[in-house]
């Protein structure tokens, strides 16, 4: 990647306001995740993901100087939870998508490149995994392994790699029909280099776009499992758990203003929505960028 090409891509993103918004949102969250220890200093540096509690009262407290976003059920600080929850979201997204991507790329590429019975066997295995309803499958695995963020990540990998395998297989099947693949064979290029130099660079971009979109959905899925009580332990900084805490406070049950506890639901939700939107917009931008013919 030379400078000239990088500038072209940068200009392309800057021209399109939605792409720019997506990129800025994602960069904003990346910054939050990186600078989390400075933005919200952990009271116990050994366990930074454990949200600090200010008191033991069950009733949430509104925003104040001490707790900028207020506290949620159990007096967990919302601001701290959202800042460190960003790290959790990235951790889940990168680990799950990274592993699923590696498995999917290997299975899909081998399947499509060699074809025949190899393809048949690998795709039937993929079908078996696809036959499970996703959320039910994940819940079963977590139930077997026991709750915990790492177990949730494993379960998500086990039931998510098929999407990538299918996607890359279709893409490789299309790309390998191009004459430059046959030209590579005529030039004596070994099979692994035909895959790595010719096929993958031309076949991978639907997968990259998909994985960018999944950076939004996978942490949401983890959040949903946290919401169901299967994810991180109580008090672990994750957006899903914050939303789970606010379940009882969406509409006030104690009389008076029905939205008295608005901060319990609004701050974590906004964090989730903006994060998902950023990745989705970035995915759309990548779709445009990854076509070299668009770079003229």
């Amino acid at each position: 990647m030379n400078m000239e090409r990088f500038i072209k891509i940068a200009k392309k993103i800057a021209r399109n306001p939605t792409s720019l918004a997506g990129l800025l949102l994602v960069l904003f969250y990346v910054a939050i995740a990186i600078f989390a220890p400075f933005l919200a200093k952990p009271p116990y540096p050994d366990t930074p993901y454990q949200m600090p509690q200010s008191g033991w009262s069950a009733i949430p407290k509104p925003p104040s100087w001490q707790n900028p976003f207020g506290t949620t059920q159990g007096q967990y600080d919302l601001y701290y939870g959202i800042i460190w929850g960003t790290r959790t979201a990235f951790k889940v997204g990168i680990v799950v998508i990274g592993l699923a991507l590696i498995i999917g790329l290997i299975v899909g590429t081998i399947s499509a490149y060699f074809g025949g019975w190899v393809d048949e066997v690998l795709m039937r295995i993929t079908d078996i995994f696809l036959a499970f309803p996703f959320l039910v499958g994940v819940i079963v695995i977590v139930a077997i392994l026991g709750p915990g963020l790492n177990h949730v990540m494993w379960a998500l990998v086990i039931f998510y790699w098929m999407t990538y395998a299918r996607l890359i297989r279709g893409s490789v099947l299309e790309v390998k029909e191009n004459q430059y693949v046959m030209a590579g064979r005529a030039l004596g290029t070994p099979g692994y280099r035909i895959i790595s130099r010719h096929i993958l660079p031309n076949a991978i971009f639907p997968v990259i776009i998909q994985s960018s979109m999944d950076m939004a959905t996978i942490p949401l899925m983890a959040a949903a499992l946290s919401f169901l009580g299967l994810g991180a332990p109580v008090g672990y900084a994750s957006w899903g758990q914050l939303v789970s805490f606010s379940r009882n406070w969406i509409v006030s049950s104690t009389g008076g203003n029905p939205f008295a506890y608005w901060y319990t639901i609004v701050f974590p939700s906004v964090a989730i929505v903006l994060y998902a939107m950023g990745w989705n917009l970035l995915g759309d931008a990548l779709r445009d960028i990854f076509d070299p013919r668009m770079l003229i």
Partner: peptide, 22 residues
């Protein structure tokens, strides 16, 4: 593989025979 360089080919379609990413 030893004989590959000695026997070469020029393809019909100049659009699909060159890798667009190289």
């Amino acid at each position: 593989k030893k004989y590959r360089p000695k026997l070469q080919v020029i393809f019909q379609d100049p659009y699909s025979s060159l890798d667009p990413r190289m």
